[in-house]
């Protein structure tokens, strides 16, 4: 049975429809890529799953239907979310950002703590006390992922991890993603840069004009 199951998902902003009947699933330990041109509805799909925008459809995480849950309840079930625009708390330091994401470890999954995320994203270790506002885009991106990992998620929705990053950082990001996969975290990753995630992904979907098909 899939860990995350999405059936007939429709969503939009106000009366602008963005998603029409999206169907996808994510198995335990799987890395699945969602590709498509910008404006196609990738980010909207992730936000809709996370309960951050109004949506309709049948959504399940494990055995739990997500339809009526609030975002914080969905997060507590073990579904992490890393937004495209990072949304670091800019007034908070790196360590404080991590603290916001911290949750109790989940049985059967390796527990993430500061030391472990710093091992994954080495540059962050050197700037524990730096406020989010004074970090580069790439550093913020790492922090956004690290912050979500602190919640010990079973699955992560990862929106455009490589967007706007220098090639070197993209490589670091790819290594981090591989490490996540080894740790048994399921990942649904949106990516425009198909080369980036293709090597890691077990499967891929293509989203076009608000509908999804397997690649």
């Amino acid at each position: 049975m899939a860990l995350l199951e999405v059936r007939g998902l429709s969503a939009g902003y106000g009366r602008a429809r963005v998603l029409f009947d999206v169907e996808l699933e994510l198995g335990a330990g799987e890395v699945v890529m969602l590709t498509g041109r910008n404006g196609a509805g990738k980010s909207t799909t992730l936000k809709a799953i996370m309960g951050l925008i109004a949506r309709e459809g049948d959504l399940r995480f494990g055995a739990t239907p997500l339809g009526r849950l609030e975002a914080f309840e969905i997060a507590r079930l073990g579904l992490g979310y890393v937004p495209e625009d990072r949304r670091i708390f800019t007034a908070l330091t790196v360590a404080e950002n991590l603290q916001v994401g911290r949750r109790a470890p989940r049985p059967g999954l390796p527990a993430w703590d500061e030391a472990r995320v710093f091992a994954l994203f080495a540059p962050l270790a050197a700037m524990k006390e730096r406020p989010g506002a004074r970090m580069s885009g790439g550093e913020q991106k790492m922090l956004a992922i690290a912050r979500t990992l602190m919640g010990n998620p079973r699955a992560v929705l990862l929106d455009e991890p490589s967007e706007g990053l220098a090639p070197l950082v993209v490589r670091q990001m790819a290594a981090a993603l591989a490490e996540l996969k080894r740790a048994g975290v399921s990942v649904l990753v949106c990516e425009q840069n198909a080369q980036f995630a293709a090597r890691l992904a077990d499967r891929a979907y293509v989203i076009e004009r608000g509908t999804v098909r397997p690649a």
Binding site: G12, A16, R17, F20, G39, R209
Partner: peptide
């Protein structure tokens, strides 16, 4: 500005 965004195809 994106005249067709949010419309069905």
């Amino acid at each position: 500005d994106e005249p067709t965004a949010g419309m069905a195809s």
